[in-house]
Design a protein around this nucleic acid. Structure first.
Lengths: 332, 332
DNA sequence: ACCTGGTTTGTAACCGGTTACATGACCCAG
DNA sequence: CTGGGTCATGTAACCGGTTACAAACCAGGT
């Protein structure tokens, strides 16, 4: 026996489907009598409305599609938490699609959401502007997070990488560090690129040299990068990693090699994931959850029919100084 | 101008909707001619099928509903990652519903998924067996994770809390610890209860006393618990926290008070979140992602029509010894 | 020329809701 | 007693796909 439908309820309550629908949607113009018959029938049959059918006829799903790359660790959970908080506050659900590979797959994932969601939040720092522009279905409202350019004129929320990096440069230079290493994040990732470029520019402006080595945002890559540098005998007195995971890996490599932090080498990360606080890592604090929250908020406003500026909202991060650069901060 | 529908495509290609559907679904019996006309029309109109309508007519959504409480931190991201990995491997999406409050809300969340998903994975350690049984819509396939009892006869995947706790007891006793504190997790949470009860039983069996203090799984509660104990002047030589977050809080409180770990007090957690490795925390390794993966796997098998044992699958965790109990492990 | 069998194609019903519009009941004023 | 207004209710179309079934078509065989 299949699940009951609204017609089953109507039959049982001896009324029309229209009346059942009216009762279920709490419309006013229904007699007491009808209302009772319907609620009884609903209870007796254990009827639960079919959300899919409802969405189809209303052209409204109350779901938001979230497309994001295969993140590791806390960045993922934080941003999803931020979105979820905002979504459930407004009665929306999140439809998640983790995109593992290339642009082809991303485009498919977004298309697959047509008709399932009212709008999209897209986190795709690995796609180029064009790839993005034609992956996003034309008439679907979408908000982008940390993408390059302004693909398709969609509104976006972005992290001000330059400002964060600038603060790092200032801090390291004021500590008197002269030979600085930057471990860059995954190749092709827009955040990785922006951070590396901005860091290089910021240091050049201050007359300090940087060497950039390639990482991929994983802890292992940070560790490997430092191991390689140490082995090569290259001297350096500060390391700025493109994210906290790599900074953590770098720290481990330094500890293992007996290099004193921060006395001999200062270490700075980016993101301020919860782990950073625990290991006393100086880092750039990005309220990740807030980024997600803002993106969702903006999308919901658009769905509610509000006018959107269409612009890119910049979120300025803040430097948090801890013991990997400041010995006095060691206590915690 | 609204999004194109299959009928628009049919009109443009001068064929029937049936033919368009056949082309889109790669059925064999379509002439070369028709196929080309359709693909051209699809391209020209930028047509993307409406997944919602498709699901309705096929009674298949290719989505799995995930209901879980408002988790903090890495447990959440790990379990979702595990599920997502398995889901996307099989062409499914995840519809997330974070349930913040009581049983009423949970029931609503699950009902709201009817017609949007093909099955449910439910993580509800805070609900009683009855609450769960009547929150889950009758004819929706569902797999439970870490719930009490066998609500509604749904298959489940569970963590063998007793086995993990047993190992902790063994370890602490073999280290010669005699005055042991357990910081319990959130009241009413089945995992918290199982761990506390099993730990008490295991220690009694070994003739060692335990004192149980109440926490709520947050880092702050772990910190507060230890602060209170230290202030009260109570003596103890080991702390076993109901999860890693509380253990981390406990560690911080001990460090701040100048208590040496593990010499004076040994500390053990539960879960093995990534952070644990970084702070050298001895803990019970759960492989959270695998739990999610298994639950999803099982659900997909049921959806594929396979016979399910209907039983509760127990996952045995393993003790990982690090420097908060073993000085020799301090290196990492 | 006609029948047969196989293939391609189109029509229309269906999935499970919502809702515009028509209908009928009822009440009150004239 | 009739006409007009209000209100509750029902009928049927619609949302955008899929697909059973029937019709049309095209050979090949006799």
């Amino acid at each position: 026996m299949a699940d009951a439908t609204i017609r089953d309820v109507a039959r049982r309550a001896q009324v029309s489907v229209a009346s059942v629908s009216r009762v279920l949607n709490r419309l006013e113009n229904v007699s007491e009598e009808t209302r009772n018959r319907v609620t009884d029938a609903v209870r007796e049959l254990g009827y639960v409305p079919h959300a899919g059918a409802r969405s189809l006829s209303l052209a409204k799903t109350n779901a938001i599609g979230v497309v994001l790359p295969d993140f590791h660790g806390e960045f993922f959970s934080e941003i999803v938490r931020g979105m979820d908080r905002e979504a459930s506050r407004h009665g929306y659900m999140l439809l998640l699609s983790n995109v593992h590979a290339g642009s082809e797959q991303s485009a498919n994932a977004m298309r697959a959401m047509r008709g399932r969601v009212d709008g999209l939040v897209i986190l795709a720092p690995h796609l180029t502007e064009e790839e993005l522009a034609d992956a996003v279905p034309a008439r679907t409202p979408a908000v982008l997070i940390n993408t390059r350019g302004v693909a398709g004129g969609h509104p976006g929320v972005r992290l001000d990488n330059a400002a964060g990096v600038e603060a790092v440069a200032d801090h390291l230079v004021s500590l008197g560090r002269k030979r600085i290493i930057h471990i860059a994040g995954a190749a092709g990732n827009i955040d990785a690129i922006e951070r590396a470029d901005a860091f290089k520019a910021a240091l050049e402006k201050r007359g300090v040299a940087v060497e950039i080595v390639q990482g991929d945002f994983t802890e292992e890559s940070g560790e490997a990068a430092i191991d390689a540098l140490l082995k090569s005998g290259r001297k350096f007195d500060a390391v700025f990693a493109g994210n906290d995971m790599m900074a953590s890996g770098a720290l481990q490599a330094l500890n293992r090699a007996g290099v004193r932090v921060p006395d001999e080498v200062a270490v700075v990360g980016f993101d301020d994931i919860p782990l950073a606080r625990h290991i006393g890592l100086t880092t750039v604090q990005v309220h990740i959850a807030e980024l997600g929250e803002r993106a969702l908020d903006r999308l919901l406003a658009i769905l509610a029919g509000e006018e959107d500026s269409g612009g890119q909202e910049l979120h300025k991060p803040e430097l948090v100084i801890r013991s990997t650069t400041d010995p006095k901060a060691r206590s915690r």
